Simulated assay, not measured.
Amino acid sequence: MSVLLDHLPELWQGLLVTFQLTAASFLGAAVLGVLVTALRVSPVRVLRALGAAYVETFQNLPLLVLLVLAFFGLPEIGIKADLKVTAIAVIAVYEAAYIGEALRSGVNSVAKGQGEAARAIGLTFAQSLRHVILPQALRTVVQPIGNIFIALTMNTALAAAVGVVDLTAAANRVNLLEAQPIPIFVGAGAAYALIAACAGFVTGRLERRLAILR
């Protein structure tokens, strides 16, 4: 325990970076996920195919591979960005595939009559999706999206492998100085577990509050 207290400033700074990665990546993934969902349920076959290709591509590639390609490949073609910004972008693009699929399952759970009624009153596809379908779909996938948020939080630890000093990287640096891996990494693991527990609690409350009574 003393080793954690001795290096609390470094670990706290790493935890703050983890919070930043998590919040920004989830926000980006949510926006992209909605777009992916729109493609997946579009009446245009080409757009549906593009959405399916996006999901299949990113769900079948390891996140670490994407991070390595972005960090070491993009500078080779003249694209340079801050390490943290690059990590956020890559994680967001990766997790958007999972959020898109979760939202699509929610859209599929909405009665077809809802979409037909929206079209009957003159709403376009985009308008019906925005004002009628998605609001109902979101209420049915609160818990799955919460699970994706937890997975995303854990996946931010991979950014440490490419130079981002998050909680995992900070814990590793402290361990290199102190050579006490058990208390250091147990402490870091407890911090991740606490984030996951808080996310699970919040999404559980939201799911009960927003549940659609049938």
Rank of each mutant, 00 (worst) to 15 (best):
Q114E: 08
A199Q: 13
G163Y: 04
I133C: 08
G100M: 01
V165Y: 13
Q136G: 04
A102V: 11
I133L: 14
G100S: 04
A137T: 02
S109N: 09
I150T: 06
A196V: 08
Q114N: 03
E101V: 02
R130V: 09
E178H: 04
A161R: 09
P183F: 09
V107F: 12
L167V: 02
A102Y: 00
L103E: 02
A157H: 05
N155P: 07
T153Y: 00
A170E: 03
A191S: 13
L103M: 12
H131P: 05
E95P: 08
A102I: 08
L158N: 04
E101F: 02
S105D: 00
V164Q: 01
M154G: 09
V165F: 11
V107L: 11
L152A: 01
L138E: 00
G113T: 03
A197T: 15
T140F: 04
G163H: 11
A151I: 07
A169T: 07
S109R: 06
V141T: 05
H131M: 12
F149M: 13
P181K: 13
I182V: 15
Y98G: 07
A193K: 13
A188W: 03
V174M: 10
E101I: 00
S105M: 05
T156V: 02
V110H: 07
A117I: 06
L138R: 04
L103T: 01
A197E: 11
K112V: 11
A196C: 11
A188H: 09
A117V: 05
N108P: 07
E95F: 15
E178M: 10
